[in-house]
Nucleic acid binder design. Structure first.
Lengths: 179, 179
DNA sequence: GTGCGATATATCACTTTGATATATATCATT
DNA sequence: AATGATATATATCAAAGTGATATATCGCAC
């Protein structure tokens, strides 16, 4: 596997659940894991190509009836080993870039109304996302007996816990700015 | 300014507080804002060069007594306007990549001990960082009358609020995994 | 039948990272 | 005063990732 390519692990992880096309992988990244990870076509397709060369994934016999191309990928034994090695590796980088906080930190050059507005924008987005996370949580609680769902549930709980913390901060921050 | 270069705003923000060298900028990124932003020399130096060409920053007359090179940058009027325009722009991208959560989501392919270990590693780091954040908070509370410090304080409060949420999640997650 | 959104792969310019190279300054130890 | 370690300081590069765009087909509503 490439030295520093995180997208490889995301792809391997998703393929460990089921066979997928590049497009399917993008859809799953944008739904299930979007609260803590991002990924674009521009990294997915080249990665799939190189991972195939490296023997981490392989093309499944495609049941193409028509002329439309569609490549369904499957994880290999080597790919599964790579995924497990990564899971057992102690180092994990949590890379956070909050543009909202940059705007807080540098807000002093403008009127306080600007900072207030920026907190309001952040709060609105957080409320919307939190609503969605709670909806996921409720649905997951119906199927929590299955192993895979427990792991999904853990990430949703993480989202809820942090998003509620964001809202508490919004309240405190607003109060501070308004004296 | 370059279309999509966030580092420009970080540099302009820091220079709005005081004149700095590229090396100083890196130090400030690694200390004051490291909890919510990162930046490397490989982006800082090229950005400074292009921003100088674009008239956003300028070299201050350097008081070089010896032969050692040292370039001190200063924000220009245009640079200040660019910073203010960004602060007033409603869109802000908060880009989060938690490798720890990826390992939670894909943890199902390994024994639960692996997931437990990964939560423990995360928790240990969070406890250390939280201690530091609380230390910053105490020190800041002594100088909160000054404008700039209020904005710094807001970001520290954010860090404390979210890191405490991380710890609550660790407890819940651990309990869930152990049934 | 035609317009539109979803499916599907691919590529590219630009941004950022993380590592490395180069050189000087400062300071403690020998 | 020589040595070595650490901090200061700028610069560059391969590799990774983003966001946009190009291309084409499929399925469905009107």
């Amino acid at each position: 596997m490439a030295k520093d390519r995180k997208i490889d692990l995301v792809i391997l992880g998703l393929l460990s659940h089921e066979d997928l096309t590049g497009y399917d992988i993008k859809k799953q990244i944008d739904s299930a894991i979007s609260f803590f990870w991002k990924g674009s076509f521009g990294s997915i397709y080249p990665a799939l190509g190189e991972m195939e060369k490296g023997g981490l994934v392989k093309r499944r016999k495609s049941g193409n009836t028509g002329g439309r191309e569609k490549i369904i990928y499957q994880i290999t034994k080597t790919g599964m080993d790579t995924l497990k090695t990564w899971l057992n590796d102690e180092k994990a980088t949590n890379d956070l870039k909050y543009e909202t906080l940059l705007k807080m930190y540098f807000g002093g050059v403008e009127d306080r109304n600007v900072t207030i507005r920026n907190i309001e924008i952040f709060e609105k987005q957080v409320r919307e996302d939190l609503k969605l996370l709670k909806f996921y949580k409720e649905n997951l609680e119906k199927v929590l007996d299955q192993e895979t769902h427990v792991h999904y549930y853990l990430t949703v709980l993480f989202g809820i816990e942090t998003y509620e913390a964001y809202l508490r901060w919004c309240k405190k921050a607003m109060k501070m700015i308004l004296q």
